[in-house]
Amino acid sequence: MSDQAAAPFHNWISQCTQIPGVLGSGIHLPDGSILCQSTAEFLSDDKLESLIRRLAAWEPRLTEALKGYKTAFWRFEKANIRCDWRPDGAMAFVMLRQDCQETSRLDSKMCAFMTLS
């Protein structure tokens, strides 16, 4: 993907990381490439990329679990991860601190992701 084509995705990721409580954000594109950005010291970009790849690989299992799924929310003791899928297979990833209260802002960002190009 050219820098110009990737710009809206980078912009979206950057806006997500500015939401209080967001530890990292990224996008898994249908061609398998990953764009991501971490805001937490303990979460290197490599770790974040590996986590995004791991969760993107769950796509067939999610289909098996619930046809027409749009969102998967992985809840852990210290952090939560939200993944939203578009019909073209692109996946948005946002990792949140457990106490993140910005649900509506996050919902808006996920809506915006659906129309990014």
């Binding site: 619930l66 027409g68 799924y69 749009k70 998967a72 852990f76």
Partner: peptide
């Protein structure tokens, strides 16, 4: 499979123990 995946992910200290996976669509939720 979920248990195995969750256990591997939970070994990352920044995530901690796995609680649950919620999958949502327009017609239901798992």
């Amino acid at each position: 499979t979920l248990a195995s995946e969750a256990s591997e992910m939970a070994s990352e200290d920044f995530l901690g123990a796995f609680d649950r996976l919620e999958i949502a669509s327009d017609v239901g939720r798992v």
